[in-house]
């Protein structure tokens, strides 16, 4: 039997739900010579700001049990490079859903960045990143306060007709309140979760391992928390949810969809295996067969 992997997100058809998460797959082009990207349901591009950014000093990576911390700090070439170079180059190679991840430090900056991204034909979805824990005075500051989250969502909503997905921070006590605030402010979809703020210390030098002291925790360690948050938000909101956080296998994709995700992002797993998303897509039909699933979209939110 042919298993149907297709799904839909914000009215856009995806051939499968598997999408490399922003920040874990560059601009897609980096791996284009290693495998055919067209196996992917979508690609979420590296977080982009209005101006180019160098990001944080190194070390930016610290390993831990079942995952890692990163403090890259939104290194990116700026939104003009995104729309003029990166997206057109990727579009030549890739026919699936291209998601531009947009971040900033002020509402005006988010708005201007999204206005420019809105004019780029190759971008299918704008993912508003209000959850980066590695920059000061921006990013997560918007994602941990319902009023600020609503304000930035509404501001961006006013400058784009493209589907608008807000990527939420898990560093909150009430994820549903933030999710509802974004939905009410005009978000077409939600993506959760971004990384958890964490820290590691080198016990020999008695210094933080990361130059930025703290970083975002991701990887299998956070998967159960992400599933719980996706489940809560999927039940509380009408807009579709993209599940993200510690997804490493085809089984994890199915679990995330059962929790309520219409599409699933894979992040840290790409860092240890650049072929992770491809392998997950290839493994899905077999796992569906074992579980008696004919059509993947049938299981969305069944729990």
């Amino acid at each position: 039997m042919v298993r149907d992997l297709s799904t839909e997100f914000c009215g856009i058809g995806l051939k499968n739900p598997v999408i490399p998460a922003s920040g874990t797959f560059g601009f897609g082009l980096e791996l284009a010579d290693s495998f055919d990207l067209n196996i992917l349901g979508g690609i979420s591009l590296k977080g982009t700001t209005l101006e180019p950014r160098f990001g944080n000093p190194t070390p930016r990576i610290a390993e831990c049990e079942a995952g890692l911390l990163n403090s890259v700090g939104l290194q990116n070439p700026g939104v003009l490079a995104l729309v003029n170079e990166k997206v057109p180059a990727l579009r030549k190679l890739y026919g699936g859903c291209i998601i531009a991840n947009v971040s900033g430090f002020a509402v005006d900056e988010y708005r201007e960045c999204c206005r420019i991204a809105d004019g780029c034909e190759g971008i299918d979805i704008i993912e508003l990143n209000i959850s980066c824990p590695n920059v000061h005075g921006g990013g997560m500051a918007f994602g941990t306060d319902a009023r600020a989250a609503a304000e930035v969502t509404a501001a961006v909503r006013s400058v784009t007709h493209k589907p608008l997905v807000v990527k939420l921070s898990p560093n909150v006590s009430d994820i549903v309140a933030i999710a509802r605030a974004c939905e009410d402010a005009g978000a077409d979809g939600l993506c959760l979760v971004n990384t958890f703020l964490g820290m590691r210390i080198d016990i020999k030098t008695r210094k933080p391992i990361l130059a930025n002291r703290t970083g975002g925790l991701s990887g299998p360690a956070i998967f159960p928390v992400a599933v719980r948050m996706v489940n809560q938000v999927a039940h509380a909101c009408k807009v579709p949810v993209m599940g993200c956080g510690g997804v490493a296998t085809a089984e994890n994709v199915i679990e995330m969809m059962m929790a309520g995700a219409s599409a699933v992002q894979v992040g840290s797993e790409n860092l240890r295996n650049p072929f992770a998303c491809k392998e997950i897509v290839e493994a899905l039909p077999g796992v569906m067969e074992q579980l008696g699933i004919e059509k993947l979209s049938d299981i969305i939110g069944c729990v």
């Binding site: 920040g23 874990t24 797959f25 560059g26 980096e30 791996l31 290693s34 590296k46 160098f54 990001g55 190194t58 070390p59 930016r60 990576i61 610290a62 890692l68 990163n70 890259v72 290194q75 790409n270 860092l271 240890r272 650049p274």
Partner: peptide, 20 residues
């Protein structure tokens, strides 16, 4: 210190004369 080791996670960027 590296993450992916293959150029797509930007975990090991340094500033050089030619930019990041």
């Amino acid at each position: 210190r590296m993450g992916c080791g293959a150029g797509f996670c930007y975990g090991c960027t340094i500033q050089t004369a030619g930019g990041p």
